[in-house]
Design a protein around this nucleic acid. Structure first.
Lengths: 202, 202
DNA sequence: GACGTTAGTGACACCCAGTGCCAGCGGCAA
DNA sequence: TTGCCGCTGGCACTGGGTGTCACTAACGTC
């Protein structure tokens, strides 16, 4: 029994972190499909039933508290000044929420390598990203005086997320660039209608 | 060898169609999660085991022969003239592969309503669309003299697919517009860097 | 200090998606 | 007829996810 009132970091928060770390390590080492939820639970020191009280699905185990990231993105977008171009404000918000400390970068790489590389996790990410799209579309709709369901807000939301995802892929594949630079490069191409396509041959 | 003569409707093709229709109807009526594979199999007049010999997963049941659509997109892109702008060629290809006969539009609406609306199908679509992205990225890479893994080809592939998906959503929600028009509208915004964002307030 | 309450946990049974295996059955060629 | 072959269905099994119940530790109240 863990009992005792050490609980400084809060027992639930600690368990949550153990689950995430165990899932990240096992998935990285053996692949998502080859790991059972029993094994993750064992590695995290809990029962399988308790595992599913902390995370809704096996795929959710690698996402940490993604909801708070979305909330932070929402606040950042709401706080942007009206004289800033819409795309620039979205880019800045994406850069800000992905501004991890150097010590946290290895874990971010591990997570994103899995999310973008494992088909099952890639599929599941769509559900999580839908929240991001909703937040961005609402921001664009406010700024442009449109409804969030109109073509333009939706399109900006999905294509900026495509830009962010692509920047992540390049960042992971390269290994030498900074994520912020990759994000800016992708958003610049998007905002200017892909000028790189018009310079025939590099 | 194709062997076997003619087989006018071909038993396997017919079974495939029955599975797709049964899945489409049941999912539309009761929701993806509420329908079991047993029920789809029953409705299609086959056993559950046979059902899984025709489709890899429950989610795949609504996709028909999506692979041939991707092949067709690939051929259309390869056949574009070099003097046409890259984005225009991609838009034209998307319009062409989605140019259904009027009689087939209800089924297309049904399929896309499910794919874009049901979370599980939306997640699964990511896996199918990865093939589309690969084909488009290769085309862009050829046209721009880059590798398919570079930022620009990937970005163009993902954001044009975002445009196509958004156009589909608007087409489904509206009900009066033509899909081709919605696709062109989305691609125009994308190609010009979202001019709609710069006209402050409508 | 005994008591009821409450939150968290583990064990168990269950449903359902997906798979491996094998037996049966029809068509087809020698 | 015989043997091969492709398709099918039945069966058992694995693994993700859930509902239920009993147990226990922490906490407030008298």
């Amino acid at each position: 029994m863990v009992c005792v009132t050490d609980l400084l970091p809060d027992a639930r928060t600690e368990t949550r972190a153990r689950i995430e770390q165990a899932a990240l390590d096992l998935f990285t080492r053996r692949g998502f499909e080859q790991v059972t939820t029993d094994e993750i639970a064992d590695a995290a020191g809990i029962s399988r039933r308790t595992f599913f009280r902390y995370v809704a699905t096996k795929a959710d185990a690698v996402w940490g508290d993604f909801g708070s990231h979305v909330d932070r993105l929402d606040r950042l977008l709401s706080a942007t000044r009206p004289d800033q171009p819409v795309l620039a404000s979205i880019c800045a918000a994406y850069v800000e929420v992905n501004d991890y400390a150097v010590a946290d970068l290895p874990m971010l790489r591990q997570r994103m390598t899995l999310v973008l590389g494992e088909p099952a996790l890639q599929a599941h990410s769509q559900v999580r990203y839908a929240d991001v799209d909703r937040v961005v579309a609402e921001h664009v709709a406010r700024r442009a005086g449109l409804t969030p369901g109109a073509l333009l807000p939706r399109l900006v939301a999905t294509s900026t997320r495509a830009a962010a995802t692509t920047a992540f892929e390049v960042w992971l594949a390269d290994g030498t660039t900074s994520l912020a630079d990759d994000l800016h490069a992708a958003f610049d191409q998007l905002a200017l209608g892909f000028p790189g396509l018009r310079t025939r041959a590099a």
